[in-house]
Amino acid sequence: MILYVVGRLLAAVPTLLIVAIFIFGLVHIAPGDPAILIAGDNANPEQVDKIRERLHLDRSLPVQFGIWFGNAVTGDLGTSVYSGRPVTELIAQRVEPTFLLALYTIVLTVIIAVPLGTIAAWKANGWLDRAIMGFSVAGFSVPVFATSYLLIYVFAVELRWFPVQGYKALSKGPVETLVSLTLPSIALALVFAALIARVTRAAVLDVIHENFVRTLKAKGMGTRRILVTHVLKTAGVPIVTVIGIGLAALIGGVVVTESVFNIPGIGRLTVDAIVRRDYPVVQGIILFFSLTLIAVNLVVDLSYALFDPRVRG
């Protein structure tokens, strides 16, 4: 078990290096002088020179990478070209809403999708299965912003159950925070749940015809226990994998949702940074997302061992 964990941790190191090189290269792959690119169209030559100096663009590429990587490891991702503030600080300020939004979305998704997918598989090809899979296709094909506006119209404008937009920080009370994040989380969860429900159904269907299910019936176990304690746990590995992959897909959704609901998270920071060509911030955000995904992958890998004793080796 410990060997397995250490192995997974080591396997993440090369991934990290590749990500770092990619992010570093990002500014240099673009055609033209990165300094001019960063400075923008209206900059004068002095400004361009200053940027070149600050980003060490006059040195050789490997040296530049060394400097950048060394700084990044110590948490220094440079400063924003736009506001002049450290990138790390900008990101840290925006982490809370995004993190909570993602977490809330995942919890909602799992609560909705795993039971629905399981029921669909259990009643495979019945009307309930068709209804659930129909919902899942719909959830997947409607864009996030469309569901978001629909949710806002119904639950915020008409029913007034939730605020139209905005975010209440945790420091002002967790209930307020939860309320402010409910509609955006639902909007995201609908897409995400469509995916997870499908995968759950497929994974459960794979398992439900196995001999051990017949044994459980022959032992007098009830349907619910058979499905939850035995079938779902056996089918757990593919489901958790897709939840992990789905999280990557979620990042794109977070950017859109934060814009629609005016939530001051990383998604909004991303949009702003791209519009302003604030390259250090863009780099920092990509690095942050990459690290998050690597961490999620690690957690997913480790959870395999939790579900399946055969993985522990």
């Binding site: 051990f212 022959a218 007098g220 056996t234 579900f307 055969r310």
Partner: peptide, 24 residues
Amino acid sequence: MQRIRGGRIGMIFQDPMTSFTPVH
């Protein structure tokens, strides 16, 4: 029936490998 299955009538099957839940 649920009370009888495994209670008053026990059953065993041909393939003991696949007849157990692998993860418990």
